[in-house]
Amino acid sequence: MVDNNWIFIGVFLLIAGLFPAAPIIMGSMIFGPKKGNAVKSSTYECGVETVGDTWVQFKMQYYIFTLVFVVFDVGMVFLFPFAIAYQQVSLFAALAVMGFLFIIVGGLAYVWQKGALRWV
């Protein structure tokens, strides 16, 4: 027994893929000219021949921001079922979940204080 709403979502995902695919295929297969050459398909970098490899090493900062994001993401997910049941929980439970938030914020405060949230 699968929820009917999810069947709708599943079918929608498939159909939604077909919608943008159709004009792309029409454009590239039927209507568009097909006269490619090496110069046309060379990398566009302001008219200059591209120098070196494209895939260069990136800054550490991107990784650190994503790390903090992952931690927050995982933490926030726990709050959604709690929010649904919020009208039924006691004041104590509400305060305890605030404690949960507080612990994560403590982690954020440490990261902030270390200066890792600064874009350098």
Binding site: Y63, L67, V71
Partner: peptide
């Protein structure tokens, strides 16, 4: 879990930073 996440954040930042 909250404590684990906070510790994970602190630890990973300390390891990841130059």
């Amino acid at each position: 879990v909250g404590a684990l996440l906070a510790v994970a954040m602190v630890g990973s930042i300390n390891i990841a930073r130059d």
